[in-house]
Simulated scan of single mutants.
Amino acid sequence: MLRLAAVLYILVASAVGGAAVIAVLTLDMRQGWQIAAAFAAGLVVAIPIAALLARRIYNALQGPKPV
């Protein structure tokens, strides 16, 4: 599951980080440290998102649990 989470992190981090940068630029914050901080915050927020997605995909691939 860790490999799946790592691959998902690459995709999720770029999407969340990019969205954070766009949000900062929309608020007319154009200094370099503001853009970099928004991207870094997006990278941090992407960690639990990727872990949650990986867990759900992994559990879905295991099939139904026997009762």
Results as ranks from 00 to 15, higher is better:
residue 1 M to C: 07
residue 2 L to V: 15
residue 2 L to T: 15
residue 2 L to N: 09
residue 3 R to H: 10
residue 4 L to M: 09
residue 4 L to R: 09
residue 4 L to G: 01
residue 5 A to N: 11
residue 6 A to Q: 06
residue 7 V to L: 13
residue 8 L to G: 05
residue 8 L to Y: 04
residue 9 Y to N: 08
residue 10 I to P: 01
residue 10 I to D: 15
residue 11 L to H: 08
residue 11 L to S: 14
residue 12 V to C: 06
residue 12 V to I: 15
residue 13 A to K: 02
residue 14 S to C: 08
residue 15 A to Q: 11
residue 15 A to L: 14
residue 17 G to C: 04
residue 18 G to E: 06
residue 18 G to I: 06
residue 18 G to H: 09
residue 18 G to A: 06
residue 18 G to Y: 07
residue 19 A to T: 15
residue 19 A to S: 15
residue 19 A to D: 07
residue 20 A to P: 03
residue 20 A to D: 08
residue 21 V to P: 06
residue 21 V to D: 04
residue 21 V to N: 05
residue 22 I to D: 00
residue 24 V to L: 15
residue 24 V to G: 14
residue 25 L to T: 07
residue 25 L to A: 00
residue 25 L to K: 11
residue 26 T to E: 04
residue 26 T to C: 03
residue 27 L to C: 07
residue 27 L to V: 12
residue 29 M to W: 14
residue 29 M to N: 14
residue 29 M to V: 15
residue 30 R to T: 05
residue 30 R to P: 15
residue 31 Q to S: 13
residue 31 Q to C: 10
residue 34 Q to M: 11
residue 34 Q to H: 12
residue 34 Q to T: 10
residue 34 Q to N: 12
residue 35 I to K: 10
residue 35 I to E: 01
residue 35 I to S: 01
residue 36 A to G: 04
residue 36 A to S: 05
residue 37 A to S: 13
residue 37 A to P: 00
residue 37 A to D: 07
residue 37 A to F: 11
residue 38 A to Y: 05
residue 42 G to N: 02
residue 42 G to P: 00
residue 43 L to N: 05
residue 45 V to E: 12
residue 46 A to D: 09
residue 46 A to C: 05
residue 47 I to P: 00
residue 47 I to V: 10
residue 48 P to L: 07
residue 48 P to T: 08
residue 48 P to I: 02
residue 48 P to D: 09
residue 49 I to G: 03
residue 49 I to W: 03
residue 49 I to D: 06
residue 49 I to T: 09
residue 50 A to G: 07
residue 51 A to L: 10
residue 51 A to F: 04
residue 52 L to Q: 06
residue 53 L to S: 07
residue 53 L to A: 13
residue 53 L to H: 08
residue 54 A to E: 05
residue 55 R to G: 02
residue 56 R to Q: 10
residue 57 I to W: 02
residue 58 Y to G: 01
residue 60 A to Q: 06
residue 62 Q to A: 04
residue 62 Q to G: 03
residue 62 Q to M: 02
residue 64 P to E: 14
residue 65 K to D: 14
residue 66 P to E: 00
residue 66 P to N: 00
residue 66 P to G: 00
residue 67 V to I: 09
